[in-house]
Amino acid sequence: MKTNKILGFVYFIIVLTYVPYSNAQVKDKFVVVLDAGHGGKDPGNLGNGYKEKDIALKVVLEVGNQLKKNPDIKVVYTRKKDEFIDLFVRGKIANRAKADLFVSVHCDSHTTQAYGAGTFVLGLHRNKTNFEVAKKENSVIFMEDDYKKNYAGFNPNAPEDAISIILGLEEYLDQSIYLASLIQDNFVNLKRKNRKVKQAGFIVLHQTVMPSVLVELGFLTNNKEGKYLNSKKGQLQMSHSITDAILKYKKSIDLNIVNDVKSPIIIDDKALEFEGVLFKVQIAASSRKLEPKPYNFKGLSNISRTHQGNIYKYYHGNTSDYNKAKALVKNAKAKGYTTSFLVAFKNGDKIPLADVLKTNSN
């Protein structure tokens, strides 16, 4: 039953996002969708008495004003005033605009005097801290009407549900990481504590079919940082940092060099190892029995084969590191195996990938 709920949610989101996007009109400008987090009945966090929804909106509107000075850029807002917008509607706005970028702006909170600015891209939250950040932002769905229907029973408090929304949907991850790294570089230039680029399962990022990032400007609960973010100076400096990063990204796109730029981040600076689990990339299934040699598989090495009934399944790679496994998928697709996908094995038996990943999410 739980698996059916998760699959139902994934199917719903795929339909929700891809249909509007595919029907969008041809555009002649670089479209940036700016999303001010929270709004209306949802104030966001209220650290030190400040309102996240107000600060996020002021920063987003300033970013938009700066971007509009470029005649080649079209700016679309998910909200321009203090109003509540459902998370799935924010994604639809971006997809219908056939956006080139989606940037969602928020402020963080903590029970301590934690501080610093960070930028998130869609992905597997690698530790409890990242999951908690995503959980806080995703919990907004409880304020929406018919949220059970709109999100097919998705529970933002369940790590396995948050994982389910990102599996297999990382098409724009490289571009997202590149934009996020540009934003973080600019924050560092402002002498802000660098909380780095991280991954987490944010619903609002999942629903967009373009490079997307979520910016946490800083902690309103920190006395000094909250005051800074609530000030005109702080909002201008942060908005200029985001704007400059978007313009640098656009320039790289115009010069067609984004894919040649190595993202300067290693998320959490650690390998993501799963003890006792082996990840492989399934590249083919056939009734033909082929020798697992590179010459039979477009030069791919480390090929293995399993036999089930009349079908032989062929796999590329073998690693317990999830990040290395994702790199193997990219390698297989680059070789022409465009429908290849990741599978997991334990003690020689194939096991559900989501079950493996959720063991490392809390």
Rank of each mutant, 00 (worst) to 15 (best):
I283Y: 05
R96Q: 08
A36N: 01
A94C: 06
N130H: 10
H110F: 14
V26H: 15
D174G: 03
G168A: 13
L87E: 04
H38A: 05
A158Y: 12
F297D: 09
K326A: 04
V10D: 01
K333Q: 15
P352T: 05
F187H: 13
T243R: 05
L46D: 08
R288G: 06
A162I: 14
V343C: 14
K81G: 07
K191D: 15
K280A: 10
G39F: 02
M210N: 05
T17I: 11
D86W: 01
K51C: 01
H240L: 05
N70D: 13
K313T: 14
Y172C: 04
L217E: 14
M1K: 09
K148Q: 11
A325N: 02
K29I: 08
G37Q: 04
Q184Y: 09
N130E: 15
D145A: 09
T306P: 08
N70A: 05
K251H: 07
L278P: 01
P156I: 01
V197T: 14
G47T: 03
L220N: 12
V32F: 01
S239M: 07
E144A: 03
Q113D: 14
D86M: 02
K224V: 12
Q113T: 12
E52I: 00
Y178M: 11
M1G: 12
L229G: 09
A162V: 14
A158D: 13
V277K: 02
K251P: 05
S176E: 06
F154Y: 15
K29T: 14
P292F: 10
V281H: 09
S212P: 00
A245F: 04
F12L: 11
N70K: 05
F202K: 06
Q184A: 06
F120W: 14
N296L: 02
F9I: 04
F279E: 00
V19Y: 07
Y322H: 03
V329C: 06
K53P: 03
M143G: 01
N222S: 13
V19R: 07
Q308K: 15
A24W: 11
F154L: 06
E216C: 09
S252V: 02
K27Q: 13
